[in-house]
Design a protein around this nucleic acid. Sequence first.
DNA 1: CTTGGAAAGTCAACAACACTGACATAAATT
DNA 2: AATTTATGTCAGTGTTGTTGACTTTCCAAG
Lengths: 162, 162
Amino acid sequence: MSPTDHGQPPFPTEDEILRSVERLFFAYRAFTSDPDRILENMAYGRAHHRAIHFINRQPGTTVNRLLDILGVTKQSLNRVLRQLIKDGLVENRVGPQDRRERHLYLTDKGRVLEAQLSAPQQARLRQAFQSAGPDALSSFSEVLENIMDPEMRAHIKNPEGE
Amino acid sequence: MSPTDHGQPPFPTEDEILRSVERLFFAYRAFTSDPDRILENMAYGRAHHRAIHFINRQPGTTVNRLLDILGVTKQSLNRVLRQLIKDGLVENRVGPQDRRERHLYLTDKGRVLEAQLSAPQQARLRQAFQSAGPDALSSFSEVLENIMDPEMRAHIKNPEGE
DNA sequence: CTTGGAAAGTCAACAACACTGACATAAATT
DNA sequence: AATTTATGTCAGTGTTGTTGACTTTCCAAG
């Protein structure tokens, strides 16, 4: 052993970390597969689902805010929003105070699709939490929040905004 | 309350489930951002990283096995492997028993890149587990394994194979 | 009231990475 | 000898991301 090796193995070990890398990969793929399967016969994809999800969670959110949450360019988001608005799933209201802003809302039709996409994904997560026992959710949540970049945490803790 | 409402709120509640949807989204994005940042200046992308990761974890794995793990088409994987082999990061050996099979190994050069890509991602996860306390890892792992499709669990529990 | 800048929208070109379908080759199996 | 399996390859396509350039609208500060 080297003089700086205090005999403390790292926690978690490298092998456990690598397994967790794989757990994240496989779980995330399963998690997105439910809505993906529903969307594959429509003209929409995962990007549309993400927009619909966050507009549903934060009705009246602005385009700028959505850009921050989704972490894509406005050109990329705009392509998605244009389709959703044209197809009557999302409504675009001029901001009441600041009329440059566009506030986004799901229409009834948009809410129907949101529920349809969300249902199997929610069922998958609920089953996972129920099988793991009542205390698993908080550990799971804490680890994921530690993994993410700190600025993003506010978008979970406070669905309303700041 | 309706006659079928037994007064049992679902566990977890819908709001907690939706927050976990967002936790997965933000955490996964952060988790992939480390290697993505390193790769953006190279001719490689996330698909190359995934191939390198699993070849490193299961040296000698076959193309078919890798296809099963990664869940992509052989055309998609082949494009990636062709580059990695051409650039001397991955080695392609004819199977000793079945000479149709190609067994995949990282070269020294491949292992260098693997370590480089893996380091910040591992550091991120280790920090997340350490902050969350010693018991968080097992709950975290259990929930993720419950989320994924069952066939995938074997690829974590036994890095060697079956 | 004019000017500067922020918010939003659009157009064009491009890249990564997935897909399907068709086909080729070599080797193992039946 | 015929079939199946494992792999590789070519061509075409779709989604989603990127840059860069530009316009319109509109609030707010000088």
